[in-house]
């Protein structure tokens, strides 16, 4: 191991990446933790918004459907970076105005919470479309049968629609999760200390740009590949008992 390090001249890089204070490794890991926190929160919030949005688009009245169409179209056509700025400024402005109106002092917005809200709203628009497609792919007879047996809507959702649509939704949701992890990097622009910003700070104060950016890239890649494996399991689990799609097609 030591000989390998010696051979590639990596000793300096390893020193920079070490976890103890002269190295910046712990900063990077803290950034990764923040990124993952936000990604989890935003993905979860997006799923909740998406589930309600999909139901609203499929079963709601004409007004609700039009409003949801505007929401998903606008969110998907405007760059995330611009949305983050608008929602970030507008959100903190509104909260501060509300706080002042109620007689409190101005509040500092917690970066993690703000990031989760902003990215969650963005994710919600994509999740609405993914889940709507998945619900539509469920044979309508199954849902009608449940209705005919007098299942109330929430029970129907929990016992029939969600389990039946899981296998159709998992690939799209896996994509959304990857987008969530990568979109956390955009919060660097509003000055939130997630992995990309931590990396840039470490890189610009040590001038070792390649070392840190490649290390951060490796961290992101580990998260991506790891979640690919996990989503593979989930997909297999959600397909249990169904005939293989591959054999059916050709």
């Amino acid at each position: 191991m030591d000989a390998l390090v010696e051979f590639f001249g990596l000793a300096d890089s390893l020193k920079l990446l070490s976890l103890s204070p002269p190295g910046w490794g712990s900063n990077l890991l803290r950034g990764l933790l923040h990124s993952l926190q936000i990604a989890f929160g935003a993905f979860g919030l997006g799923l909740i918004i998406g589930l309600f949005g999909a139901c609203g688009k499929l079963y709601g009245g004409p007004v609700l459907r039009d409003l949801l169409a505007i929401y998903t179209t606008v969110i998907r056509a405007v760059p995330e970076l611009v949305l983050i700025l608008i929602l970030y400024y507008a959100g903190s402005d509104l909260i501060n105005k509300a706080a002042e109106a109620m007689g409190y002092d101005r509040v500092e917005i917690n970066g993690v919470i703000a990031g989760i809200w902003v990215l969650g709203l963005v994710q919600g628009a994509y999740a609405t479309e993914v889940l709507r497609g998945a619900i539509q792919a469920v044979p309508p007879g199954q849902i009608e049968a449940a209705r005919a047996f007098g299942m109330p809507p929430l029970l129907l959702m929990r016992r029939v629609t969600v389990p039946a649509m899981m296998s159709f939704a998992t690939p799209g949701l896996a994509n959304l999760w990857l987008i969530a992890t990568k979109d956390t990097a955009l919060l660097a622009i509003v000055g939130f200390n997630e992995l990309t910003l931590e990396t840039r700070q470490a890189a610009s104060s040590t001038r070792a740009y390649f070392t840190f950016f490649l290390a951060a890239g490796a961290l992101y890649l580990m998260v991506t590949l790891g979640s690919g494996v996990v989503f593979g399991w989930i997909e297999k689990w959600s397909r249990r008992g169904q005939p293989s799609l591959r054999e059916g097609r050709r």
């Binding site: 990568k182 990097a185 990309t196 950016f213 992101y220």
Partner: peptide
């Protein structure tokens, strides 16, 4: 390319 954020690639 697909596994890392574009912002990181641009800065790299």
């Amino acid at each position: 390319i697909r596994g890392t954020p574009l912002l990181l690639q641009i800065w790299l």
